[in-house]
Simulated scan of single mutants.
Amino acid sequence: MMLVKPIRSESDYEANLARLGDLIDAVPDTPEGDELEVLATLIERYENDRYPIALPTPLAAIRFRMEQGNLTPRDLEEYIGSRARVSEVLSGTRPLSIGMIRSLNEHLGIPAEVLIRPEPRQEERASVELAKPAAKQLLAWGLMQAKESFEAFMARGLGGGQALAMLRKTRTERTNAKTDFVAVQAWCAAVLLRAENATVTGPFDLTEVRKLEIVRTLAKLSIHADGPRRAQQTLSDLGIILVILPHLPGTHLDGAALRRPKDGAPVIALTLRRDRIDNFWFTLLHELAHVAFHLTDDRACIVDELDIGSSEAIEMEADELAGTALIPDEQWEAWDVKGTYTGISDILAFARKMEVNPAIVAGRWQKTHRDYRKFSKLLGHGTVRPNFTDLIPGVG
């Protein structure tokens, strides 16, 4: 284990980011897991001190909470006042009063330090700054051009005038409280730039993609060493583009479901943040569920950090479909009888019965029993990314 030291320079920062990537799959409560936790804290502190993320404007925070909770302007009347007053606040013509701030803070959970900030002048509203670590990574990948403004990059990635609509309609409930949402949007734009010239081998048929047997067929590919690559071809046959793009600094995303602006073609994007077989297959099928059931003209992008639970209907549905395709609940409950000893031979036998990779059984066992040490060697650490070396920027 390397000696952990304070981060005092950009070179220290880059070295610690590289080490963090090596340790990302470390098991908790091990020397590597402890080092991962300490490194993550040091990196977060350095980024916060060196590249502080600006607070959102009061209007942006209110609109985000409305989007997150599916609230209408009428729902705000309880906290702001009459319909006319709500309209004035949302249009930016009426500032928030102390009473409104207290009510929005108490009932909608919007931080008071955000609500008390003044709204920027009209000419300042379009200016959004991307944090330097994220911009630096996009430049390194060749996706952002030298001296290109963030607005120009977003317009190029999201299809010109559609950029602002994309920003408003991205679903971000399943993200960390410290997530840099500007970097999330930049990552979405980068994904779409990677998908811009991608071709598929079959037409997209929504009825076909919604069939459980299709999703189950994908899950069964997990038994193959090159299963992730076979999944890419199967998705292509279904008219779906697969993009592999690591997450940006300030984000903790696992994946997303998007629509390509120029033609509406569905795109599944994965970060491979955790290079493990069980994570890959669950995330892939979760995003496929979003493609099949949840992307609409008004919801062109759904992003996910799957460590975070969600009570939102579309997230629960996607979790359920992914889990059912891999191992149906009734099969799991019949096998994983509480109190019954489970050994490696049991995992392997049940995986053969379910026609899935043993890593999927081991990963579900760990999550069910909250024991992340047992069966950790079965999870296939470090075996997914090698399937996509030609698709990962800076690798292929």
Rank of each mutant, 00 (worst) to 15 (best):
E10Y: 00
D12H: 13
L23R: 13
I24R: 15
I24L: 10
R45V: 09
P52E: 14
P52V: 07
E67I: 03
T72A: 13
T72W: 07
Y79N: 01
A84E: 14
A84M: 13
R85Y: 06
S87M: 07
L90E: 14
S91P: 04
G92A: 07
R94E: 06
L96Q: 03
L104H: 01
P111S: 03
P111H: 04
R121V: 06
Q122G: 05
R125A: 07
F153S: 01
T175V: 01
K178P: 03
D180I: 03
V191K: 00
T201G: 02
E208R: 15
V209A: 09
L218P: 05
L218M: 15
L221H: 03
R229H: 09
L242S: 13
L253E: 11
L253A: 12
P261K: 06
I268S: 12
V291C: 09
A292N: 09
H294S: 11
L295Y: 04
D298I: 06
R299P: 05
E305M: 09
S310R: 08
E315D: 15
M316S: 01
E320H: 14
E320G: 06
G323N: 15
Q331D: 13
G339D: 10
L348W: 04
F350Q: 01
A362L: 08
A362K: 10
R370V: 08
D371A: 10
Y372I: 13
G382K: 10
G382C: 12
T389Y: 07
T389L: 14
I392C: 11
G396S: 07
